[in-house]
Design a protein around this nucleic acid. Sequence first.
DNA 1: GAGTGGTCTAGACCACGGC
DNA 2: CCGTGGTCTAGACCACTCA
Lengths: 259, 259
Amino acid sequence: MGAAVGEGRAVPRYVQIAEDIVQQVRTGVLQPGDQVPSEAEMVERYGVSGGTVRKAMLEIRASGLVDTRHGKGSFVKARPPVRHRSSDRFRRSFRQGGKAAYLAESEQSGATAKVSVIHIGPVDAPETIAQRLGVDVGTKVLARRRLYFRNGTPVETATSYLPWDVVRDIPELFAENPGDGGIYARLEEHGHVFHEFVETLQARPAAKAEASELALSPGATVVHLLRNAVTTSGRVVEVCDTLMAADQFVFEFRIPATN
Amino acid sequence: MGAAVGEGRAVPRYVQIAEDIVQQVRTGVLQPGDQVPSEAEMVERYGVSGGTVRKAMLEIRASGLVDTRHGKGSFVKARPPVRHRSSDRFRRSFRQGGKAAYLAESEQSGATAKVSVIHIGPVDAPETIAQRLGVDVGTKVLARRRLYFRNGTPVETATSYLPWDVVRDIPELFAENPGDGGIYARLEEHGHVFHEFVETLQARPAAKAEASELALSPGATVVHLLRNAVTTSGRVVEVCDTLMAADQFVFEFRIPATN
DNA sequence: GAGTGGTCTAGACCACGGC
DNA sequence: CCGTGGTCTAGACCACTCA
């Protein structure tokens, strides 16, 4: 026991080990892409048992600096090119410029973006969605589910729900690529002019299934965002349900000092 | 081994156990305030080893439904009566009504709120703060550090940083209680009229020290928020650095559909 | 098949809380 | 003092990845 210097039993060994590794990442001893020492190697290097190294690795993963894959090892993330998700991303001028909000924003920060459409089709509105759209639970609505990539890694899943009577006459909304400016541009062309977007945001640890969908390490943080798109007539014509890898985003909001 | 029915090795035992307990909480079998079975008891009940129960408890804690204290046990939380932190909380009318933003908002949702001032005094501006205030690193600024409680539990720490030349002539800003409407009301009285507030928000797992300050279980999620208070003359007269227990908050933002 | 992480065991000992 | 959770050990065995 107590092989280490006796500096007070305050700090558990596994925390010390975790801090050591995290420090090596922050100071650049371990570079992005480098493999973090394997668990077996740490057992030797630090002279502790496998269980202890395991707990250290959990701490390290929680720092968000490292990406672990079963059978391969843990690697320093190339990440923190965090994307600013700012509150002006819905500017009409972006849409008229031909870009959807996501791509417009990504281009600003010079990263490669990709969108993969997972599903487009009618679904029965789940409860929270139905409430927001002002329809009955189980009503048929159009769902557009997609997965967003940034520099090759999945960072966000998003599902848009739209009332059937709104989408019925807009064939582009059933296509994988809804055209320049995205679905919001199509909606405005058909008379649904936006007044505001109301977003609610919650952060929490990822459930197992969510972690695998976004290729996150278990225990990673996700941000759950729900957005109502409200038209000038006061109607909610879209609800967007989004799940994001929290370490990939910085959210920015400008709040006017209204009276 | 494999005492359980052989329903596919897909789901680890510790996840099954965690789901079982979480389900009991959600369905009300375990009521708020009830003690979750002790680890020793689970070892017996589920016929697994202590290590496995331990991992299950980690999962359960990550759900945010349970509160664990060393030497006592784990207990079902008395609610996440989540507080809506909405973007209209800086309305001038709230301040003129005599409330600071925090208390004004809490009253809306009928919860007991308390603010405890930890420290008020000059500090050397840390880097990110200095940048935002537009002063040199190490410049003397006023720090007001406080801890917010909701229904008796700490949910948020916040530190306001203000340039010295701004606060010098406003004695109330050095008092624990800055008076009706909070520090923003005092600043506006002295000619610093607000134009907007710019908030950036990030979510991540809590570090050990943060977890203990907010009385969180390890691995819980925190939200880190930085706010610039910008006056009509374009100056940043306050930066507020806030750390929140993520499971206590739902953030709401209204984004106008500007051109 | 060699090397990696993931699950699980059966124990020891420590630290905290309350009777 | 006893029951609680927290740390740690020294193994076993499984599952994934890649050469």
